[in-house]
Design a protein around this nucleic acid. Structure first.
Lengths: 189, 189
DNA sequence: TGCCACCGAATGAACGTTCGGTTGACGCGC
DNA sequence: GCGCGTCAACCGAACGTTCATTCGGTGGCA
């Protein structure tokens, strides 16, 4: 990945921040500029339009997340341990980057999503799918379409992160492990 | 529930339609009016503002959905059968009302959501929570916070509906039953 | 001198909302 | 039955604001 110019990065982060707070239409470019410590015109030096900016924020996030998940995976662990590890890496990422959760969910369910070929966040999904597919072949998991399995895992983590963010469960609570176990119990043999 | 005036209903449906297609900011009031066969001013006869309109669309949907779920529930069935039945009712509702899915997900992850009291207290979730809570007490389900259980069930159904909509699984496929079974296996004792 | 990153006031279009006005249904006194 | 007043439903042109985007300009570096 190439170096991202400092101002460009500031713009991306500022956009992410504001959209989390105020949603897509609540965030005018002027505010994005102000919060990034940049002039309005400067945004257009780096991004063609607001739409393009928002799409780039998305890919910027996904790259970060993919990085985090891969970094923590240890291939020498048992399959089950790896599973819980991958699950926790994702959860940790969401908790450490709370901006991401709202933005991500908002983006995925918006028409912007179709402006990108919807293959970008598939990198993470692809990774997960392969991992789960191996689990099926090795007899650890139920024989279910890995496509389906991967989606179940991804949404399960997001759901957990959302509950924590909303204060419905505590970040330290054993309930979190319970959720991962429910998922594992459901999909494993 | 009281009768909804015809034009009011047309406005609600039109809003739902447009937001599904174009998102919140892609749908100007003028278009909502046009598609509902109504003058722009008329909308303001029924709704204070665009925000209020969108919030009312949400509760309008939730009421419909609640209705559908309750209608299919048969208390004389076994607990497990009722569980699958509730799960299927929700799925059926999403499939029969495809507009709802996108709108719903968009709404929940937007700042509008906070304009209504926390949707933690919405009627459907309350209903489900009670049902699951009973399951825990009766020894059918793992002893897990019913709040958590209800969220897991709700998101599981939504995830399934989304996969079907995106064509990742077929509406007739046995994979759908598998997903419900995975959930049941995870949360049951 | 030319180029690049950057600035920020100005522009113009889009959009939410308002408001003065029309229509038609309904009640009431005669 | 008729005239009259009232009021809710409804219309749509017009208003004022907000906001994405533009563009002429500035400073610094090669």
């Amino acid at each position: 990945m190439e170096q991202i110019a400092e101002k460009k990065k500031a713009i991306l982060e500022s956009t992410l921040d504001l959209i989390r707070e105020k949603g897509f239409h609540g965030t005018p470019m002027s505010l994005v500029a102000k919060n990034a410590g940049v002039a309005a015109g400067t945004i257009y030096h780096y991004f063609d339009s607001k739409d393009k900016l928002i799409c780039e924020v998305f890919t910027y996030i996904m790259d970060n997340m993919m990085e985090a998940v891969k970094q923590h995976d240890k291939e020498e662990m048992t399959y089950q341990a790896r599973f819980f590890n991958v699950w926790r890496s994702q959860l940790r990422f969401y908790l450490e980057n709370p901006k991401v959760l709202v933005f991500f969910e908002q983006f995925v369910n918006s028409p912007y999503n179709e402006l990108i070929g919807h293959n970008r966040h598939d990198k993470l999904r692809q990774h997960l799918k392969l991992f789960l597919s191996n689990g099926v072949e090795a007899g650890y998991l139920r024989r279910v379409n890995p496509e389906v399995l991967s989606v179940l895992v991804l949404t399960n983590v997001i759901t957990t992160a959302k509950m924590i963010r909303r204060g419905e469960i505590n970040q330290e609570s054993p309930e979190i492990e319970q959720i991962a176990e429910i998922l594992w119990k459901g999909i494993s043999l």
